[in-house]
Design a binder for these strands. Structure first.
Lengths: 253, 253
DNA sequence: CCCTCTGTTTGATCAAGATCAAGCACAGCG
DNA sequence: CGCTGTGCTTGATCTTGATCAAACAGAGGG
């Protein structure tokens, strides 16, 4: 009966969904679907019933690991809020961030037992996680679900390849500008002239994302600041008066 | 009736398949499946019938474009032999190779009209290509087909992320060693101690793959040669007496 | 045979970014 | 209040890989 409520919620208006998400009963991901474009819109009522018994909403504080590199991966998650960084590390400690995941993204690695990347909360995040086994079974008999996940995979592949061009061929200045531009677009892709945003990453993380050192990131930020392309307050808050100039500084002309 | 033959071929032995592939009638991709692990094993006989009327086997000479960056992409292909490089180019000509595809791979971008990468034959290749529209329709009603393509996408994503670590954090020496090791593994993944292989890429391509210049690639190859880790004949043919040493030089300790 | 073209190597020099080293700002805390 | 720790910036110097330049090897072609 709980589930009937959820199904109704799906069709109803925003406030009610919120109530359900905050209720005692672990919220089924139908709420993610409604508010964040997650995967659960593809599931049947009976599948949702089952899933609802196992999903769990939880908060993860910034900096803590969601999944370690090479670890057994036994859950999928929808990111409800915040940013997750995916990274790889070499034996001697050199690290590279290979992807960022934002609020509506689905996290997890289908069809494999081990993850080759570590997932860590970049800031405080909220996720809705569900057991791998159940989702894997549902994938097998719900083609739309696999399709949805496939589309997410394709999106990640495109982003990874874009980033390879940045890593391999751009200058430090262009790399930093590319990063800022990417974040600005992700915060509000519709409203491209939105001028102000918070960086979800420390300078150290940005360096690991761009294949640079902390010092170089800092110097390039200062340079962009002196050139009037950005303003920075409190280290994290960035304002970009002219997004087009930032785009050009990023080499995407 | 042609198609019945194909179906039989699928179940029968190697030589017959080859005959079919060389016959006048454009070979349906069932032959790819049998010999190269392509996508057509997931299709029903009637789907194969239809597909067989539209697939076309063709050769592409090294260096020519298969799909231009940003071009309309109206075909999928199975690579039957050879290597394809996927690359991105900046407006000023800087280029980055973002992926290599080898013989059994499926090439093409589902669900999108435009490709953001250019695909070019690295050496002379043979492909079995099929119209996008037909495959897209078959994907819609054959979940196994989407699953197969999804798995290929996941493989490409893993490879892209591995390469991001190389691009962002490895030294020139490690990059070149990583490249050689990767090629060696791809030529014969089963037989990891296979010592000898041909490079499918020119020095310029290798540089674009590694985010280096031609000169640096050349110098690092010379250095690996002097250290006795590899031997090189005719510029393209590489012998590696001790794969373990190469792996260590690549930083994958 | 010479000539040209492409792909490659090698050498000399330069510069972008790494490394080493301080120092500042701010938050938490005894 | 001063102390400590963390994250960030700035400066001085060094190193890696880029750039500029030359030369070589092999293929094709007149």
């Amino acid at each position: 009966m709980q589930v009937i409520q959820f199904s109704q919620a799906k069709a109803s208006m925003e406030p009610q969904r919120k109530d359900i998400h905050n209720s005692e009963i672990p919220a089924v991901c139908i709420s993610c679907e409604a508010r964040h474009g997650g995967i659960c819109g593809t599931l049947s009522p009976s599948q949702l019933t089952e899933l609802s018994r196992h999903t769990k909403r939880r908060k993860v504080t910034g900096g803590s690991e969601v999944i370690g590199q090479g670890e057994q991966l036994n859950a999928y998650s929808n990111i409800l809020s915040g940013v997750v960084k995916l990274s790889k590390m070499m034996a001697d400690g050199r690290q590279q961030i290979v992807g960022l995941q934002f609020a509506p993204d689905f996290m997890g690695r289908p069809f494999l037992r081990e993850s080759q990347v570590a997932a860590e909360a970049a800031v405080d995040i909220e996720v809705c996680s569900m057991p791998k086994a159940i989702i894997d079974r549902m994938i097998a008999d719900t083609p739309e679900l696999e399709h949805k996940i496939h589309e997410q995979t394709l999106k990640e592949l495109d982003e990874a390849r874009d980033w390879m061009l940045t890593l391999g061929r751009k200058t430090a200045q262009e790399k930093v500008a590319s990063f800022l531009h990417m974040i600005a677009m992700h915060i509000d892709p519709e409203n491209a002239d939105k001028r102000s945003f918070d960086l979800p990453l420390t300078r150290a993380d940005i360096a690991d994302f761009l294949g640079l050192t902390i010092e170089t990131v800092s110097r390039q930020m200062t340079k962009l600041r002196h050139e009037g392309i950005i303003r920075i307050e409190n280290n994290r808050h960035v304002t970009c008066p002219d997004m087009e100039r930032l785009r050009r500084a990023a080499g995407n002309d």
